[in-house]
Write a protein that binds this DNA or RNA. Structure first.
Lengths: 199, 199
DNA sequence: TGATTATATTAACGAGCGTTCATTAGGGAA
DNA sequence: TTCCCTAATGAACGCTCGTTAATATAATCA
């Protein structure tokens, strides 16, 4: 019989426990039991609890958001700016709504202040990724004379902040959520935002 | 000599440790040492660690924000709406910047997902307080024909979300921060917001 | 004053923690 | 088959955890 990919399973189950109980509140024994092995077997794959934590974080480095969200068919819509923004926001919250991202935002919010988390986790780093993309979009819109000549950074902030708040409030907890309701909130936000900046 | 108010000291130091290490990551012994007593003496004042946690939360029930922020001289400025909003936002972040509120927002963000925190802590509950006040303000502005006839709830959301994000990013960590820089960010936000809704 | 009450100490408990070690089982390469 | 390496086990380590019990001390009150 082939070996199952235990290392991957450990990271997976560790994310479950860390994101619900916090790093300090989760134990190696819990994780091992969830994987289906004894706690000592964990140390064949990781040399410490901290190393498991860092292995999780390495999967969520702030980068490549635009790859995951942007695509050619989205960029084709740039001549219909509101539709573009709506679709962009829609893809964003769909991505944030995936199970792994929901777990990660919990981990990020929980551990950003702790000793172990503060070294590697920064809310700003993750939001800055989205800010950067947004700034590019709005700079382009201004250049093309379809949006008012505001500071693109402020526009990025105004576009981004309500989305991140929706993520924090509705796309973090493990509960079943009414995603349709969240979608409506996002649509209303983007609609208001676009009406504020369109020429 | 009179007894020092040990109970209050325990709550104070517990907030320090809980807000930096999380509930699970902080120990009764750490807290006791910070207070200057042995861990067993804690139990003369609280019957469990959980009771200390709940005592902290009872100091931060979501209410009375308007009492802390609003005042007559602020309401007198309602005929100068932008100045009113600027001063309102300024008082808000000054309040959020107090040491206790900085610690509490960390505790809230960290513990909202854990077993013990999820019963009593909800980010939405705290933001809703601000949303309610904001909604009242904007309803009044619309009625007085000084703001565009948007849905007051959306206006409250647009006004509130960037402020809460600033709180999360810049008014939570224990570091020394450049408060002047934060003030400028808030001013820019309020200015953009007002320009979007003014008649 | 003496009795009472509140607050502290020291010591210990059972449990769980992260981690290590010696040993065993099993799949891949020679 | 034999050898090796990976991955598992069970037992134990030293430590810390939250909590309790017995006891001492210091402030309050009759």
């Amino acid at each position: 019989m082939k070996y199952p990919n235990t290392k991957k399973l450990i990271v997976e189950k560790a994310l479950d426990y860390f994101s619900n109980n916090g790093y300090a509140g989760a134990s190696i024994r819990q994780i091992a039991r969830a994987v289906g092995i004894r706690e000592s077997a964990i140390y064949n794959h990781f040399k410490s609890k901290e190393e498991i934590f860092l292995a999780i974080l390495s999967e969520f480095k702030p980068r490549s958001l635009s790859e995951k969200i942007m695509s050619d068919d989205l960029l084709d819509e740039l001549d219909n700016p509101e539709k573009f923004l709506q679709d962009f926001a829609k893809r964003l919250i769909e991505y944030w709504n995936t199970p792994k991202e929901r777990k990660f935002i919990r981990l990020l919010l929980m551990e950003q202040f702790t000793k172990i988390g503060s070294l590697e986790l920064s809310v700003s780093d993750y939001i800055n990724e989205l800010r950067g993309i947004s700034k590019l979009i709005f700079s382009e819109m201004i250049k093309n004379n379809i949006a008012k000549k505001y500071d693109p950074e402020i526009l990025a902030e105004q576009f981004t902040a309500p989305l991140f708040l929706i993520r924090t409030e509705h796309l973090a907890k493990d509960d079943k959520i009414d995603f349709e309701k969240v979608s409506v909130m996002v649509k209303k936000h983007v609609n208001f935002f676009w009406n504020s900046i369109k020429l």
